[in-house]
């Protein structure tokens, strides 16, 4: 199991490395005239390569980050491994939920607006 988690941590990192580069460049460009919803959404809206980009990004980070937090919980905060496993799993679910929701929000605004309006 431990070896599998190691592989997941590293492979998710490999997947993310190019995505992070693109994300950093995007940030540099996006902050130039101040962050506005219009600017963000005009780039991401509709079914585009950005939707795929962000879905993959969210999936990878939802694996990568909880595994890192798990080690910190065990090594620095002295949590038992089992406890850290469950918390990491909860963080993974949280990141998946919030992350995919935000991807939906910025890429499929019409669907998003319908859900938001209906709520």
């Amino acid at each position: 199991m431990e070896a599998r988690l190691y592989a997941l941590q590293r492979l998710s990192a490999v997947v993310m490395a190019p995505l992070v580069v693109v994300h950093l460049i995007t940030i540099m460009i996006a902050v130039r005239n101040g962050l506005t919803a219009e600017e963000i959404l005009s780039r991401t809206q509709g079914l585009s390569i950005w939707a795929v980009f962000y879905v993959v990004f969210v999936l990878a980070v939802a694996i990568h980050a909880p595994l890192g937090l798990r080690k910190i919980m065990v090594e620095w905060f002295g949590l038992p491994r089992r406890g850290a496993d469950w918390i990491a799993l909860a963080v993974c679910v949280l990141f998946l939920g919030l992350g995919l929701r935000s991807v939906m929000a910025v890429t499929g605004a019409s669907i998003g607006a319908a859900i938001g309006g209906g709520a």
Binding site: I40, L41, L98, R101, S102, A105, A109, G112
Partner: peptide, 20 residues
Amino acid sequence: FLPFHFLVLGLAIEGEAALD
């Protein structure tokens, strides 16, 4: 930071004005 990042972007569900 990530959950807050997601939450802010998620505001776009309620429309551009909410995010702004």
